[in-house]
Design a protein around this nucleic acid. Structure first.
Lengths: 345, 345
DNA sequence: CCGCTTTCTTACAACGTTGTAGACCGTTCT
DNA sequence: AGAACGGTCTACAACGTTGTAAGAAAGCGG
């Protein structure tokens, strides 16, 4: 009955109570080693009575596994990343793993530091959703923490990747707008300076769809943006509306861009979808409640999260030098009000 | 030069390189104990050369502090909680603390389990944003993990609280609508069955404002909701629109409710703010980009997060039996398009 | 030059866990 | 009957860190 004041029970306490050795309790807890049934029952009862919980850090120290993975996203407040994070937390919980969230702010240094396992080795592995990550720096990273990248594949970063097929998705979204009879189909999400992979892939899908429909590419319809935010979306839309011949449809590379577009269209007195059809990308929750509701490309986020967690756990358990894999999550085009009507006139 | 393959350096390695004892390195790292300057420099150089990082779990095992706190929220995908989480992560980072996020789904059992320090004692303390938490169960919780509650104060839960003054905030929001000349001011967010504290507080502020303006309370204008989601907001608004005398203004207890209201109003052909003025609560980012942009009560989330982290760290470091404190974060009413115009007719 | 303090450094044990190697038991085989 | 064998269980050491207590070196007054 020598209970220490206000502290959790240890293997030692359980062992004393069940009258077995510490190691036997450990064996029961972990279930790897055979323990005779009567002994096992006795231990289980003691565990229950003392409300024993394994000490994660002690275990980590001994085994080198902490059961904690990090998820580094550019900005948790962006709904897409919040939804992704929730999906990752759920997927990790299925495997008994906790998730430590890092908000990199899209800062290359912070992303690199996250890729290197944050400030301390508590982490078993890292899921990184990079934004401005310098892949050369990443290639040189020394501390080899298991790493899985969420998002487009830039050149040859030495890591596993999990992503949706952005090219196909963008192609489908653009084709959908063209199928409505729209001919001045703009795309918002092109980037100039550091042309991030995501932007490039979606731009490629856009081009492919135009080409397939024999619609010539008009560079005026693809104003560059700095990031995928509402503000940039609204600004890009205003630029498009200033054109002599403004678009009758817009494919946005993110739902936030699309949200900004809706806002700018409203300010300009344009009706969506009559005057302007809009399709976004990400299927964040609010797209269902926008006015009008927003058509969008919906990546299967739960699947994406599961694939990512699986890949990471596999990498943690397996050979760190195994060849890098790329897995694709599925997506589908969700048609809502913002792209319902065929061309008006 | 006996570097172990692909592992981080330990105190031992640094000590060997700097030709001092392990403990001296530890003293340099932690900076608590005086170390002679030349020795210190030598150690620092060795630390730098070997890229030493302290092993968090070993430290935790020894000291009982892990440097990790948990944040348990009902639903991370709700923008308010995502924004709150981001603020907490930032505030925690200022104190060198990492944040483990738990998504309780609003489930009472999950909330209680979070309040008890999750599944293992990795956690130094818990920030809990309860939704359906049973305060009796909480009062009985045995494992006494330092706990700070974010949100309204229910009865006498034995824990520190950090919150905004919901009564005052709701009063201001309602008064603002009344000041526009609106007289049929509805409130969406009343709850029937388990009347959660948040709902009660905001309802009280609403009542107080009506009373101060000598506007009689009409129960028809406060339809009950199940939660604070867009769906419920839209449903409640539809119910209000079916009234013989529908409202000319709505105060919503959350921005999501308000977003649903905007949607329902749009479907019904109502113009906002001309026919219906709307004010929300939370100031989530999208309120600035809604169509029309949404007036709302903006809690100071960074401050809220800082206060909460401070309170928790204080509780962790201090006396667990010190009297419980309640701290208030400030808020302000943000006026946007949805509540700009005085009564039309 | 001695003894004393002061300043700096070190050896040791412990935090709670698990892998290794071996002890002990009853059973089966020769 | 003795040897060999599974099946259970246990003692011990180690993971990387820090608190304690004690050791060594240096400075000082007498």
């Amino acid at each position: 009955m020598a209970q220490r004041p206000s502290k959790g029970a240890r293997l030692k306490d359980v062992a004393a109570r069940a009258d077995v050795s510490i190691k036997t309790v450990s064996n029961v807890v972990r279930g790897q080693v055979r323990v005779a049934e009567p002994t096992r029952q006795r231990v289980l009862r003691a565990i229950d009575e003392l409300d024993y919980r394994p000490h994660a850090s002690a275990r980590h120290l001994r085994t080198g596994r902490s059961g904690v993975i990090a998820l580094a996203v550019p900005e948790l407040v962006q709904p897409y990343f919040a939804e992704l994070a929730a999906a990752v937390i759920a997927a990790a919980a299925e495997s008994g793993v906790s998730v430590l969230i890092e908000d990199t702010g899209g800062d290359p240094a912070a992303e690199l530091s996250a890729a290197c396992g944050l400030s301390d080795p508590l982490i078993d592995g890292v899921l990184l959703s990079p934004q401005h990550l310098d892949q050369n720096a990443l290639a040189r990273r020394e501390r080899r923490v298991p790493l899985v990248l969420l998002g487009e594949r830039d050149y040859e970063v030495p890591a596993d990747h999990v992503l949706v097929d952005s090219v196909a998705a963008a192609r489908e979204a653009t084709a959908h707008l063209l199928a409505l009879g729209r001919r001045r189909v703009a795309a918002i999400g092109f980037q100039n300076n550091p042309p991030h992979a995501t932007s490039q892939q979606r731009a490629r899908g856009y081009h492919e769809a135009l080409h397939a429909a024999a619609v010539p590419y008009d560079p005026e319809l693809t104003p560059p943006v700095g990031d995928f935010s509402r503000t940039e979306g609204a600004a890009a839309m205003r630029a498009l509306l200033a054109l002599p011949e403004p678009p009758d449809a817009v494919f946005c590379f993110s739902d936030l861009l699309a949200s900004g577009v809706l806002r700018a269209a409203y300010d300009h007195g344009l009706r969506v979808p009559q005057d302007l059809a809009v399709v976004g990308f990400d299927d964040i929750e609010e797209t269902r409640f926008c006015v009008p509701s927003l058509s969008t490309v919906a990546p299967d986020k739960p699947q994406l999260a599961r694939l990512a967690v699986q890949a990471l756990l596999g990498r943690i358990a397996g050979d760190p030098d195994a060849p890098h894999t790329t897995r694709h999550a599925t997506h589908r085009l969700v048609r809502r009000e913002s792209s319902t009507l065929p061309t008006a006139g």
